[in-house]
Design a binder for these strands. Structure first.
Lengths: 127, 127
DNA sequence: GCTTGACCCTCTAGTTACTGGAAGGCTTAT
DNA sequence: ATAAGCCTTCCAGTAACTAGAGGGTCAAGC
C-alpha cells in the first residue's frame, strides 16, 4: 500500500512516517515510480511505534524496543529494564509537575484577578 | 557586575543569560571593553525569569509576565489569566502521565523479566 | 490529447530552549 | 613574557517532528 493508507492504518502522519524512514526506524519497499510500498508487516511496525510513542517512550527507546521486538531470542528482562527506566522518568516528571501545580494554585488563588495592579503572582516571582 | 557574578546570583548559566539577551528578554549595559555590565535590577529580572522557568512557564510566557511586571499599571487579571492557562496545561500533562504510568505499571508487573523471550510488554505494543 | 486534482517525491528551514565548543580578546598576577 | 581565568561572538547540535516549496505520477473526464 502507499503512504496515505499506511498513515491511516498506523495513526502516524505521512510526514512522521517519512521521518522515521529517514532516521532508519523503518524501511519500506519502493515501486518503480519511486513511491513507497508498505507491507502489512511494515504497518504493524508503524503501529508498534505509534503506541510506544503515545506511551512516552523516546524515539531512541523505540529503536531499542523495535530491535528487541524483531529479535525472537531476546530476554524479556531487557525489555522490562527499558520500561522500568521509563517508569522512573514518568514518576519524576509527575513529582515535578505536582509541585509546580501546588505552588501555582496557591498563587492563583491569592491573586484577586481584577483591574488593580497589585498581584501576588508577580510579587512572588520577583521574591 | 560581570556575567559570571550575574550567573551566580541568578542561578542561570552564562550561556542562558546570553541567550536571553539574544532573544530580547533582557538587556545589559556594556563596558568599554565589550563586557556586559549587569545592574542589581538586571539580576532581579534574571532571577524572576529563573523562577518562572522553574515553574514551567515557557520563555514566551516569561516575556509576557516580564512586560506585565515592568508595567506598574497592568491589571492583576492579565497575570492571573496566564497563570491559569498554565495550570490547565499542567493538569493535562498530569492526566496524560498518570495514564501512561498506569498502563506501563501493569505491563511491567506482568513481565517476568527473565532470560526467556516471552514478554507482555512487547506483545502489548504489538497489539 | 489535454487538463484537473489527488497523490506522491525530496529538500530546506523552522520549532523550543538552550548547550557545547572553537577561536580569539582582555585582565591580572607572577 | 606568559599563563590563567574571564570575557566575547559565532556555528552547530539537541528531540521529534511540521510546514512549505517545487516538482513528478496517475486516473478520470472532456
Amino acid at each position: 500500500m502507499k503512504i496515505r493508507e499506511a498513515s491511516l492504518q498506523s495513526e502516524l502522519s505521512e510526514k512522521t512516517i517519512r521521518y522515521y524512514e529517514d532516521i532508519g526506524l523503518v524501511a519500506a519497499d519502493r515501486r518503480e515510480n519511486g513511491y513507497r510500498d508498505f507491507s502489512a508487516e511494515d504497518v504493524h511496525r508503524l503501529r508498534f511505534l505509534a503506541r510506544a510513542r503515545r506511551l512516552g517512550f523516546t524515539v531512541d527507546d523505540c529503536r531499542q524496543l523495535l530491535s528487541l521486538y524483531n529479535d525472537k531470542e531476546r530476554a524479556s528482562k531487557d525489555v522490562k529494564q527499558i520500561a522500568k527506566a521509563h517508569l522512573d522518568e514518568i514518576d519524576q516528571k509527575l513529582t515535578e509537575l505536582t509541585e509546580m501545580k501546588q505552588t501555582l494554585e496557591v498563587l492563583v488563588k491569592r491573586c484577586s484577578g481584577n483591574e488593580r495592579p497589585d498581584c501576588p503572582i508577580l510579587n512572588d516571582l520577583a521574591q
